[in-house]
């Protein structure tokens, strides 16, 4: 008995599961403390109310009532959904052919292509938006060039500070992120399936629609989720290139935590956004499943 007691503790640590868990726990605890707990606090805050300088901790749905009743929040959320949806659609449609090209038509230096595609994603996000501002601005590259060659006499003022500028800038920023998952799923496709389709008489288009596309849908889905989620929560792009017509829900959240100093309302907006994002992402998953089922 005394022997097993003496070795009980070290034996416990020698067990596989315990060791793995122990190794994982620093990252896990870190994420728990700095992510799960804070999000829990935000959810709690959303049921409290701001009472001038104090926070009233009686639980109430008042913030959510305000979010749903005041039209401004609905408009901003709807616009964020439209912008994020358009950006997702554009990036996936534009990224797919490139991912396809690298997966099927590049035979040497594939890794170099992937590296070149990812570099812009790692460079400063703020600077990329700023670059677009330089391009689209009143005195920007587009306007000054068009005036130089005499196509227009006055600078065009409709190309910056609106929703389209936001969509363009965001699509450009997230393009690399969309290419990777699509590329990975195309790369995984067993080439003998394609040969089989050809042998069985499918032309290139039919083969693409019936074999390649359905098999790459998981990648397309991952790309959609990975692009949609960050774009809906962006506030820098709308602020720099969006003007007043391009502002999104995250700008409002930022204002509530900043100037307006109404944390509970901001928290309610953040929770509403999170729930919306989760619903839409789930919608994507079901849509892809339905599409995958139909294609077969």
């Amino acid at each position: 008995m005394s022997v097993s007691n003496a070795s009980g503790w070290p034996m416990f640590f020698r067990r596989e599961g315990v060791r793995g868990f122990a190794l994982m726990s620093p990252s896990f605890l870190f994420a728990l403390l700095l992510l799960a707990v804070p999000i829990g606090v935000i959810i709690t805050f959303s049921f409290w109310t701001q009472n001038y300088l104090d926070i009233d901790t009686t639980l109430t749905l008042q913030n959510y009532r305000e979010v749903f009743e005041k039209p401004i929040y609905g408009v901003l959320l709807q616009r964020s959904l439209i912008v994020a949806g358009s950006v997702t659609f554009l990036t996936v449609i534009l990224a797919y052919p490139l991912a396809y090209y690298v997966a099927f038509h590049v035979h040497q230096r594939k890794a170099l292509w992937i590296f070149l595609i990812t570099i812009p994603f790692w460079t400063s996000y703020l600077l990329r938006i700023f670059a677009w501002k330089l391009i689209l601005g009143y005195n920007g590259v587009v306007n000054t060039s068009l005036m130089e060659i005499g196509l227009i006499e006055e600078p065009l003022d409709f190309i910056l500070y609106n929703m389209n500028a936001v969509i363009l800038t965001l699509s450009h920023a997230w393009m690399p992120f969309a290419i990777l998952p699509i590329y990975v799923s195309l790369q995984k496709i067993d080439r003998s399936y394609l040969e089989a389709a050809t042998d069985l008489g499918d032309g290139p288009i039919r083969r693409f629609l019936r074999v390649t596309l359905p098999l790459s849908l998981p990648g397309v889905l991952a790309a959609m989720v990975v692009v949609f989620i960050p774009t809906i929560g962006d506030y820098v792009t709308p602020k720099l290139v969006g003007g007043t017509d391009g502002l999104m829900i995250a700008n409002m959240i930022q204002v509530q935590f900043g100037k307006a100093n109404n944390w509970p309302l901001g928290a309610a907006l953040a929770v509403t956004t999170m729930v919306t994002v989760t619903l839409v992402a789930t919608g994507f998953v079901f849509f892809a499943k339905w599409l995958g089922g139909r294609a077969r």
Partner: peptide, 28 residues
């Protein structure tokens, strides 16, 4: 290693990758 709830714990650690950054920022 294999350990209890490996998949969920790993997914949880990777979660910041797919959360809107503004949510991460304001909660912190």
């Amino acid at each position: 290693y294999n350990f209890f709830a490996k998949k969920s714990i790993t997914a949880f650690v990777m979660l910041p990758l797919v959360l809107p950054e503004i949510i991460v920022a304001i909660s912190l």
